[in-house]
Amino acid sequence: MLSARTRITAFRLLVLVACATPALYITWQWFYGDLGAVPSEAVVHFTGRTGLILLLTTIAFGPAFRLTGWVGFMIARRQIGLWAFFWLLAHMLSWMGLDQYWDWPWIAKEMVDLPYVRYGAAGLVLLVPLAVTSFKRVRQAMGERAWHWLHRLVYVSAALGVTHLWILTRADYRMASLFLGVLLFLVVFRVGDAIVHRR
């Protein structure tokens, strides 16, 4: 049987591989021209989906800890949360650069005209204070109570992300419904847990 410390290290390594491999995959596809007729669109969709999956996984690490009692989930949560942030940042940057060619007037116009762009941008902006306060020292300086309150914004951010995807969807809502279902499950679990444990 592996020691507790080794298991945590192995899990952190697993998270690293799981979060970094899609980046290698999409880069490979980009350079080998495997992304179809509109590669920029494929990259934007891929980074967005990966980011949203990782954001929901970050949230799911809480319930996973509550259900299993294994501390590894809490230790790796910061790591996977930062990966989610970076993937969503890559999503926005690939949209601005690869898809919109850094055409700032047009990007600004899209921001003003299109609700889905605003929801997506708001979701990402909300993650910035969470990423900034993820360092251990900042967290200690803030105090646990304030830190936990602030980090509940992750639910708002995920909800904005799912809304962004929902608005963009045309006719076939399978994927958007899956994301929405997972988010609702996580919210219900969190609320139920809070009621049961009066926290």
Binding site: A37, V38, K109, E110, D113, L114, P115, Y116, I167, L168
Partner: peptide, 12 residues
């Protein structure tokens, strides 16, 4: 209602 029609991406 959800996007602009003022311009288009010519595939390729």
């Amino acid at each position: 209602p959800r996007w602009s029609q003022a311009r288009e991406r010519r595939i390729g």
